[in-house]
Design a protein around this nucleic acid. Structure first.
Lengths: 194, 194
DNA sequence: CGGATCGTTGATCAACTTCAACGGTCGTGG
DNA sequence: CCACGACCGTTGAAGTTGATCAACGATCCG
């Protein structure tokens, strides 16, 4: 099993849409490899999100900060996930989010212009990105359902059950704000104080 | 200005991707016109959502019911919006939602198989559905941000400001459950009792 | 070694829910 | 066309969930 970043991404893409070797080469050629250190930012508010990033190794989080200065985690990404400020990226408008590395990470980035060119040039690539967008939408709809129908404890338990290998890898403040609760309360849930 | 349902949808599609008349004809041909009465269901849990529906006239809502028997509105759709149980539709798995008409409505439905055929047959159609999925994902991300960062009153005010022509058209219980609060609390917000 | 960062815990507090009772309106059957 | 019931919104009182605050402890780097 290869650990070349481009091979990892190649597997990922192939699992969405079957691509010939030539097609893979073409598409992979527009991705650039980037290493990000823990706490380093790849997206910041007011700047347009130029890239969509595939996580080869490591972990990142996207969050917004409200007027009171509180963080709210919008998305995590570990190995084999994508991350960006989605609204900023697809509309090419200034971002409202920070995206930062939770761990030293290796990512592969595609820029908006290249992505547009690739989609325009190939029906298959268009299909690939269509599938990615559909899954993103479906995923987020499930999250909305959770937030509307479940208590804080239930949301935590669901997350822990669905992502057993991720749940203990994330800083607690980041997970708490993703699940819509304070770190104090998440701590109490984890220690059966509630 | 035409009120033929197919013309309305044609305008909508054209605004996403420019299509030739032939292309429009081909795509529109797989949509079927349906009238739904208030309270009538077009999707129910356990059945696979076969259709994605474009609202020509009227209003519908998608909701889930949790173990306690409480409704939670996941989505509204009025004129020029789409609605379905997105997870059920794109994965063709049994639905978890009800989708029902809030008013007598006219919709245009495309079935999953036809949509797949259309996407496979035409790069442009693929692009069209890719854009729809991207916008759905971006929209839902904004909703997640609202739910994480805002109070009940702020969420209501945001909705009222963004959809001034919709906010008073929806039954209050449906809006309250969409915004993640009880009807009692929404009533108090509206009447400045809080 | 020392400061910064992160998690823990109990006490108090606020946002929102629950409950119950009431009033209005709408649509349907007689 | 009326009457009745179902459905929907309103309101106040009491109850809960989870937030806030503050103090402390642990860990991790530099």
């Amino acid at each position: 099993m290869s650990t070349d970043p481009y091979d990892v991404l190649k597997q990922h893409l192939q699992s969405r849409v079957p691509l010939t070797d030539d097609e893979c080469t073409t598409l992979l050629s527009v991705f650039r490899l980037k290493k990000v250190k823990r706490r380093q930012f790849i997206i910041q508010p007011e700047y347009v999100a130029k890239y969509r990033s595939y996580v080869v190794k490591g972990a990142l989080r996207a969050y917004v900060v409200n007027e009171e200065g509180e963080d709210h985690t919008i998305q995590f990404a570990v190995e084999d996930w994508w991350i960006s400020d989605y609204n900023s990226y697809i509309y090419q408008q200034p971002a409202t989010m920070f995206v930062t590395a939770i761990e030293d990470s290796t990512i592969l980035q595609i820029d908006f212009e290249s992505e547009s060119r690739m989609k325009a040039a190939s029906h298959k690539f268009e299909t690939l990105f269509r599938i990615m967008a559909e899954r993103a939408a479906a995923f987020q709809q499930r999250r909305i359902i959770s937030s509307l129908t479940q208590s804080a404890k239930e949301r935590y338990n669901e997350f822990a059950a669905r992502y057993p290998n991720v749940v203990n890898r994330l800083p607690q403040y980041a997970l708490a704000s993703y699940l819509g609760m304070t770190t104090a309360f998440l701590s109490k849930i984890r220690n059966n104080k509630v």
